[in-house]
Nucleic acid binder design. Structure first.
Lengths: 107, 107
DNA sequence: TGTAAAAATGCACAAATATGCATAAAAACA
DNA sequence: TGTTTTTATGCATATTTGTGCATTTTTACA
């Protein structure tokens, strides 16, 4: 029986990763540290939005950051995040194949 | 560069796991198949709510279900979900230790 | 000290999610 | 066919989450 407090923490942690804009940022950070100013042009959203998403992931312990002059650099803190992303990628792709197979049977 | 469609799918998949009630259900399903009627008394929420959460996870391909008489049984479809849960558990516990350490330094 | 670049924050609003209550539908069986 | 058990759904509402715009803060440097 898992403790209810831990459930809430794990939920928040997963949610912090699950949101599409944040997920996209994580994929972009896979090949190393980037400053916010390099992340923003890759995204379609407002600077304020990206700033908030980055802060949120930092607060959750998913990202580390440090300032260099006017720039703030972000990187993925725990390498296990990469394993998690890879796992999800595998599972979703398997699910896509499953759906295609089922669609074929029905056709 | 990961495709935007895939990002959305992975986001939905993760969100389906991340919600606290659903996460709790997944932990409960770790030791095998259970019918909805066995899950409900473990949860504090309304039956309708649990039913919807189960349906949602089924739709996302996280759970499989089959009916036996009036009862509907659910189980985790992909074993990799266990690895994912274990990973998150490790990461969150590591983060908890980190926070405790930082708190100690400040004290 | 004035200006520029990068990042953070206040605020209002929009959109997505989760919830309970009441009720309906599905299945088994007397 | 009527009753019971289990699960699903319609509906309204509450809560959470994400968003942009405008403004402010932080830092460097002319």
């Amino acid at each position: 029986m898992i403790e209810s407090n831990l459930i809430e923490l794990e939920s928040s942690y997963l949610k912090a990763i699950a949101q599409p804009t944040r997920l996209k940022i994580l994929y972009f950070l896979k090949d190393g540290e980037k400053c916010q100013c390099k992340i923003i042009p890759r995204m379609k959203e407002d600077q304020s939005n990206i700033s908030r998403h980055l802060t949120h992931m930092k607060d959750m312990g998913i990202l580390d950051s440090h300032r260099e002059g006017v720039s703030v650099y972000y990187k993925i803190r725990d390498k296990r995040v990469f394993s998690l992303l890879a796992l999800v990628d595998q599972m979703v792709k398997a699910e896509i194949r499953e759906r295609a197979k089922r669609a074929k049977v029905l056709a």
